Simulated assay, not measured.
Amino acid sequence: MTSTTKTYRNNKNFSLLGFGLLVYKAGLNFNAFSEESQVDLFDAAGIVGAGLYLASYALLSTDRISANGAKYIGMNLAAAVCMLISLTANWNAPSFFVQVCWVIFSLNGLFNCYKTQNQQRSVQLATLGTATPNGTFVSPAN
C-alpha cells in the first residue's frame, strides 16, 4: 500500500486535490491540477452547461421554481445547448443523443408554457368582457 493510499484512508478531510493525486498515482492521465492545463471555450461551455443543469435542479428541489415553468425549462434548454457546444470538440455520440433529446423536450415544454399563458390570458379577457372603441369594457353578462 502506498503512502498516498494510507493518507487517503486515514484523512477524514479528504480533498479534491487529494483525489486528483490519488488518481494520478493510479496511473490515469488526469492533469486537471497541472499548471499546463487550460480550459478552452468548448470546455467552458460544458462547465456552464453542467452548472445550469445543477442549478435548475437545485432550484426545483428547493421549490424556488416550478417544473412546468419557463425558467426551469429555459435553464435546461440553455444547459443542453452549452453541452452540445462542448460536444463539438469532445465528441460523444450517446451524450449528443441525450442533449438533442433534451433540446427537443425543452422546446416542446416552452411551447406548452407559451400556449398555457395565452389560454389563461384569453380566459381573463373573456371574463372582463370586450373593449369598445372608446376604451370601455362591456361585460359578457350584458
Rank of each mutant, 00 (worst) to 15 (best):
G129A: 07
V98C: 09
S37F: 15
V100Y: 10
A89Y: 10
A141E: 11
N108H: 09
A67R: 09
E35C: 10
L59I: 05
M1K: 08
A79V: 04
N11K: 10
L28Y: 15
N142I: 11
G135E: 06
A89D: 06
T7R: 15
E36V: 06
E35P: 04
F14A: 08
L21I: 11
G46Q: 03
M83R: 10
Q99I: 04
V138S: 03
A126L: 01
Q124I: 15
L16N: 10
A89R: 10
L60N: 02
Y72F: 15
C113F: 10
A58E: 13
W91V: 07
I85F: 00
L128S: 00
Q120E: 08
L16H: 10
G51R: 00
G20K: 11
N10I: 12
F19L: 15
Y24G: 13
V138I: 15
N118S: 09
L59H: 04
G46W: 03
S34D: 10
T88V: 10
F14V: 13
L52E: 02
T5W: 15
A45H: 06
S106L: 06
S3Q: 14
S139T: 04
A26V: 02
G46H: 00
T136F: 13
L84H: 00
F97S: 03
S86W: 03
P133C: 08
N68R: 14
L22I: 01
N11D: 14
L21V: 12
Y57C: 12
L77I: 03
S56P: 08
A131V: 10
I104A: 08
A141F: 15
Q119Y: 00
L84T: 00
Y24K: 03
L22G: 04
V48K: 06
G135T: 01
N92P: 02
G18I: 11
G69V: 05
F42K: 05
F105Y: 14
T4E: 13
V39W: 03
C113Q: 01
P94F: 04
N112R: 06
D43C: 13
L21R: 14
V138C: 05
L28K: 13
V39P: 11
R121L: 05
S122D: 07
E35Q: 09
S61K: 13
V48I: 15
I47W: 05
W91I: 06
A141V: 01
N76W: 03
G129M: 08
F14P: 05
Q124A: 10
V39L: 10
A32F: 15
I65E: 05
V81D: 09
I47H: 07
N92K: 09
A79Y: 06
K25H: 13
N13H: 14
L28Q: 13
A80W: 03
A78W: 00
G74N: 06
F33V: 02
G51T: 03
S122H: 01
S95L: 11
T4C: 08
